[in-house]
Amino acid sequence: MAVDIIGRVIATGDRRAWVLDEDDDAWERRSTVRVVPPVQARKLAKVPFVELADGRLQGVVSSGSDAARVYVSSITAGTHGNSCSTNNNRPCGGLTDLYLCKHLDALVTEGIRQYGQERVARYLRVEVGEGKDLIDCLNSHKDPAPAAAVFSRFLRHLAYLEVPESTEPVPELHWFPAAGAVG
């Protein structure tokens, strides 16, 4: 659930609706309106990284058998081309034109957990019929995409946990209030 600056619940569906509070004329004149929808907490063990970027739902899935190996999986928006390979570009044996591999399956599940089904569906441009699962509504086919760019984005993501410490106060963060308490 998303709450705007004055505590009204905002629709979590369409992003445009999300940021808008129709009655609120002062919205443009506020310093602390929330622009990015909040991301939901999820288990990271299997899929440490998911993002909607570069025109794809893409991410990194940890191998179940080898802790040093990861798979880079993606689904392209619009065409729904599927790709899955190790970070060294070795194609995933489980992915065929007929079946999604378990990595892509996990990627979609976790992507929906993180962003919500509507946001993922809108990004991938897929119509999800009433009572259907998003993954069944994709026009899936194999379409290998290079893994290197996604993998390096993942490494950059991880690098945030290792930035050097600084104790300088950051007054700029007053523009970024922590929110999200519910109940």
């Binding site: 992003r15 445009r16 940021v19 808008l20 919205w27 443009e28 004149r29 506020r30 310093s31 602390t32 309106v33 622009v35 990015v36 929808p37 970027a53 950051v170 700029e172 963060l173 523009w175 970024f176």
Partner: peptide, 27 residues
């Protein structure tokens, strides 16, 4: 770093801004 990263991620989530109905101008 903190400030630019925060701004860039808001802009990225709003791309293309031309199609946004309203822009958080003050912010």
């Amino acid at each position: 770093a903190v400030l630019l990263d925060g701004l860039a991620s808001e802009l990225r989530a709003s791309c293309p801004v031309a199609t946004m109905e309203r822009v958080p101008e003050r912010r």
